[in-house]
């Protein structure tokens, strides 16, 4: 991999230059919570100063740039007994600045499912190929546990990845487009001092992890403790509201619905993000529900994240961002549930 550095002034020119001809998205301050803390969201930048390079985390993940919450798969013009089907893929190029390592690793996991598995998904592929990702390192927050699930560092899946080393950013270059961007906007060779600064920043980041989740035998526990009361304990709190899956950078379960317009001349097939926690996720026609209780649905969310995906791709689906834990009003977080599961095993 190639590395360069870019001064913060040149970084500003870079973002402003990219904004000239492209849609550029980045973390913006959107709300304040009741403690006065800022709540961030990835939004379109109209001005460089809107970009919050010191943001903590976005409430929702940037997943929706690649898997929108709602997406038209195909449209139809209906005739008397016939129809004409149209399929178009969205290919509007854009740039996302400020994605964390965990979020980029999340995309790499989604790549496994959406691009590298059977039936590559052209909708996802088109968006992925047309999105330039400029990642950004950060000091872990209180509850970040990406390190426990090996998602704290990233070497692929981005165009550029920045680490703040004071007056400059240390830049890892992950693609030809990334190289051209850095080159155009004043990228410099890495000096020995830059390298030292990078090293100490990385050390600093590493030393700041506070939350650890022991996932060593979680895949096995998912089977061994399948009937454990841990699930009912957390399931009783679960409101089956799907917030966890919506904010999650990797949850990709979806539903498909079709509808016709009021004149019965146009129809559309739409895909919308679903959650395995919702009551009718596994309900079939005739109202039989394979997963009738909240704790069973909750358990399967964990089963997919920490067992099923591991079996299929040798890694958990969870990237340790704890957005689900933050969004869950009932306080259900991977840390809490997995700690509980581990303790059950010890008893």
């Amino acid at each position: 991999m190639l590395y360069k550095t870019i001064t913060k002034e040149n970084f500003r020119r870079m973002i402003e230059g990219l904004m000239e001809d492209n849609d550029v998205f980045g973390p913006k301050w959107r709300d304040r919570d009741k403690n006065g803390d800022k709540v961030y969201r990835f939004l379109k930048l109209n001005d460089f100063d809107e970009l919050q390079m010191d943001y903590t985390r976005t409430y929702s993940s940037p997943k929706n740039f690649f898997i929108p919450f709602k997406e038209t798969l195909s449209t139809y013009d209906l005739a008397e007994t016939e129809w004409d089907q149209q399929i178009r893929y969205t290919v509007h190029p854009r740039v996302i600045v400020g994605m964390r390592a965990c979020d980029i690793n999340a995309l790499r996991k989604l790549d496994e499912v959406m691009v590298k598995s059977a039936f590559p998904n052209p909708y996802y592929f088109a968006r992925r190929r047309n999105t330039v990702i400029i990642g950004l390192d950060h000091e872990p927050l209180e509850d970040c546990f990406c390190r426990s699930v090996n998602a704290d560092v990233v070497f692929k899946g981005f165009d550029l990845f920045l680490t703040d080393i004071g007056a400059k950013y240390f830049v890892a270059i992950g693609s030809d487009t990334g190289y051209r961007i850095v080159d155009r906007f004043g990228g410099e060779e890495v000096s020995e001092a830059d390298q030292d600064a990078f090293k100490s920043m990385k050390k600093r980041i590493e030393s700041k992890f506070k939350t650890q989740v022991d996932v060593t035998i979680v895949p096995e526990l998912m089977d061994l403790e399948f009937e454990s009361e841990v699930w009912e304990r957390w399931g009783d709190k679960c409101m089956s509201c799907g917030s966890c899956a919506m904010v999650c950078p990797t949850c990709y379960c979806y539903g498909v619905e079709e509808d016709v317009d009021l004149s019965f001349t146009h129809a559309a097939k739409q895909r919308f993000l679903y959650s395995c926690n919702l009551i009718d996720f596994a309900m079939v026609a005739g109202d039989h529900n394979f997963r009738p209780e909240p704790h069973i649905r909750l358990k399967y969310r964990y089963y997919h994240q920490f067992r099923g995906f591991v079996e299929a791709f040798n890694q958990s689906l969870c990237v340790g961002c704890n957005r689900c834990g933050v969004a869950c009003l009932a306080g259900i977080s991977p840390k809490a549930v997995i700690d509980d599961l581990n303790e059950t095993e010890q008893r």
Partner: peptide
């Protein structure tokens, strides 16, 4: 892709 018929892996 949709995971509706998914059981683990």
């Amino acid at each position: 892709k949709c995971c509706r018929c998914n059981v683990g892996s």
